[in-house]
């Protein structure tokens, strides 16, 4: 007689429930109308079921985004959990759409759902990938731009996970500075 192995039928719970959002840039609609919730999940298996089912970022059209956020946090600056926060931002060159974008995005998702930043994971609100003609962007959003220790932990671990060379710096910018900037660049509060 066979003994059932729980490993084969029990899904693996995640620390958090996550929501995947999709943004499609339709100029005839408002920004919020263009933002759609795709699905929520709270197990490893349900994450993969969703991930395996959707397009990779490199196949999305220009102006499209994916956002993965903790359940209850909307992927916008205005959300109470985001408004004091900021983001670690990775700007990719055009060549990297073919070489790195999809791999980086998957790695980002695994960092989030696996709680890779230990206690600093509590500071994570979500992650965003923007597909843009000038170059794609990846970001991890955190909840409070003053939490230096947590932000530095997240930045260092993230850079390591993506295998970014140590001499290539990535920057953290507050949403406040990003939303009020006048030029095309926002100053970095932190770099790793």
């Amino acid at each position: 007689s066979a003994v059932a192995n729980p490993e084969q039928y029990i899904k693996h719970p995640l620390q958090n429930r996550w929501a995947l959002w999709y943004f499609k840039n339709d100029k005839s609609k408002s920004w919020t109308e263009n933002l759609r919730l795709i699905a929520k999940f709270d197990t490893v298996e349900d994450f993969w079921a969703l991930y395996n089912h959707i397009q990779q970022p490199s196949k999305l059209g220009y102006g499209c985004d994916y956002c993965l956020f903790k359940d209850g946090i909307k992927p916008m600056w205005e959300d109470d959990r985001n408004k004091l926060g900021g983001r670690w931002l990775m700007t990719l060159n055009k060549q990297q759409r073919h070489n790195d974008l999809d791999r980086y995005w998957m790695e980002t998702l695994l960092c989030l759902i696996g709680e890779s930043f230990d206690e600093a994971s509590d500071d994570v609100c979500g992650a965003v990938v923007n597909v843009r003609p000038k170059g794609d962007k990846l970001a991890i959003w955190t909840g409070n731009c003053q939490n230096r220790d947590a932000i530095m932990t997240i930045g260092q671990q993230y850079k390591e996970r993506l295998n970014i060379p140590s001499k290539a710096l990535i920057g953290y910018q507050s949403h406040d500075d990003t939303s009020s900037k006048s030029g095309s660049t926002t100053k970095n509060m932190y770099t790793v």
């Binding site: 084969q8 991930y51 395996n52 695994l110 696996g114 709680e115 890779s116 230990d118 206690e119």
Partner: peptide, 18 residues
């Protein structure tokens, strides 16, 4: 409380499991 942490190796193994 305890935090449920999964490393990338485990997460990737779950992708191909039945």
């Amino acid at each position: 409380g305890t935090r449920i942490i999964y490393d990338r190796k485990f997460l990737l193994e779950c992708r191909s499991s039945p």
